[in-house]
Design a protein around this nucleic acid. Sequence first.
DNA 1: TTGAAAGCGCTAACAG
DNA 2: CTGTTAGCGCTTTCAA
Lengths: 336, 336
Amino acid sequence: MKTRVTIKDIARQLNLSHATVSRALNRSDDPFISVATRERVRKTAEEMNYQPNHAARALVTGKTGIITMWLWSEGRQGSYHARVSQFMQAQLEPEPYQLIIDLMSYKSLGFGKEKLMSPWAVDGIIAHEADPVLSKLNGDSAIFPIPIVSMGAYQLMYTQDLVGVDIRPGSDAAMDHLILGGRKRIAYLTDDLPHRVTDARYVAYTVKMEEAGFPTEFIPLENPLRAVVRTKMREYLESHQPPEAIFCHNDDMAIAAYRALCDLGIRCPDDVALVGCDGIEDTEYLETPITTIVQPMERMCELAWEYLSRRMKDPSTPIQQTWLPAKLEIRESSMS
Amino acid sequence: MKTRVTIKDIARQLNLSHATVSRALNRSDDPFISVATRERVRKTAEEMNYQPNHAARALVTGKTGIITMWLWSEGRQGSYHARVSQFMQAQLEPEPYQLIIDLMSYKSLGFGKEKLMSPWAVDGIIAHEADPVLSKLNGDSAIFPIPIVSMGAYQLMYTQDLVGVDIRPGSDAAMDHLILGGRKRIAYLTDDLPHRVTDARYVAYTVKMEEAGFPTEFIPLENPLRAVVRTKMREYLESHQPPEAIFCHNDDMAIAAYRALCDLGIRCPDDVALVGCDGIEDTEYLETPITTIVQPMERMCELAWEYLSRRMKDPSTPIQQTWLPAKLEIRESSMS
DNA sequence: TTGAAAGCGCTAACAG
DNA sequence: CTGTTAGCGCTTTCAA
């Protein structure tokens, strides 16, 4: 039964106290330790292949070195979530922190509060579009001592560190673009009933349609999975006269819709224009690149981490907030 | 200064020892505790909003409840890695474990061994195509007591728990398919020089070309990013007579190549056939779906987790190995 | 059926 | 400059 080497082993080897070893290994600033000793300790630690026990360290310091990202992923995660995960991971890679991604959904909300949290007392939380969680936890003293930065397009609580993405202007622009392009029958494709009223895309759609005097038309989805959207879309197109344009809740749906159009030989953008939202890479690689509202995902992750680490270092930092614009990028799928 | 409630607080409240509280809360099997006490403890724990301190628990038990997945991602992560991450996450969601994804690359190999590991003593490791890491760590006693399951298409060490993906038959089938389709000038697109010789795709390509008596043609890439591949491919196509087919190292590259063809108005599959590898969703949603070698990612993750959890429960489990076939799925991009 | 006590590996006063 | 000491919160013998 081999057991990992501890600072005590090193201390014994060197005829020092384990406290000295601890100081030598950590606090590289501490002047109260001789250079010689520090070197000796470092060297033997290396030789003995010493690996600090983080559980022990965490126990005494109260710091785990773990950051959680709450990722709202009702149903399956789509490409957008994958990208955000990757950007956040990249952000943390050079840092002395580990990222744990906690998938959140309405189902998780059903559990008790403790189930919402990583069992580890994390040092900080990045809450990505996890507003339902924040609301549920609202003011919970057991959680809110942990620094939290909220990010993404859905933001209800403005009383905290925040990297918001404002998709309203982009959504408005998208609608204007479609309407100016002469499209009248514009449908809206979504699975996201619960969020509708707070969703800027939805609001932009309804307002602009109202303004233009066009009736709204919803294509509802019970599920955001590409395969499901494709089938559903195909069914819809077969049973209805195709609309002149479809404003899709996100790019995954837009791509699925695109494919459904292909399946039926309906031309995009000639017959049906398509607009998505998020700005995932895939929309650019289709034969007909899809117009979309591009979220600045990388910048969002970068800023969120900046805010979070600042808050962790100094809890008294004034509240930090930014709204980043999501910009419409017009591509072939919506040209007239 | 509020401090989290501990079992001692509960014990004090109830006039019990903290040991009793501990027993009541955990070991639900332990018969040596009265039902009444257990209930009282549970209830007050709930009321006081008790959250166990996992660092303390880990310190004494030696179990952290953390699983690491080593994800080999030289350069940026592509869609395939994103999918694998998601499947693994889904796999662990219902389990009492947290997943930490450690991005590995040749750069990480440059660091000391300890840098390779999550600072946390994890309970288990899923090594996804992290063979270079395993080789480097080969036999390292500090690491190999930790259960490791290796998964993916690159496998050099066969002496361990393993969920391999055999892409050789699929690759052979892909080459046969192209050659039978009458394509003679078949190029191979890759960025993965270091792996070449151990890469079944590469081997299949060279062997089949040799057999057919066709000269090989490599399109090298310094970088697997889609944007880079697209540019590079375009340059290549402009400066060379386009080949009749391109066998791409992975689907991301195939998609980028597809887009490059679109850019130049070269028709796929009429002018150039395309074959990818991995089986990411995106290849199915293009106007011309891309033929690819589909890796059973979900099954791979499922099995890897099964193996790992079995090994964690019982270290003496006989070695567990499976090879899953990756199957060629012929789609429009390579039809003749 | 419960309590007392030891100790997991480490950090951080406080002494020397 | 270094050693002694006291826990951090929890699990686990061993006693009662």
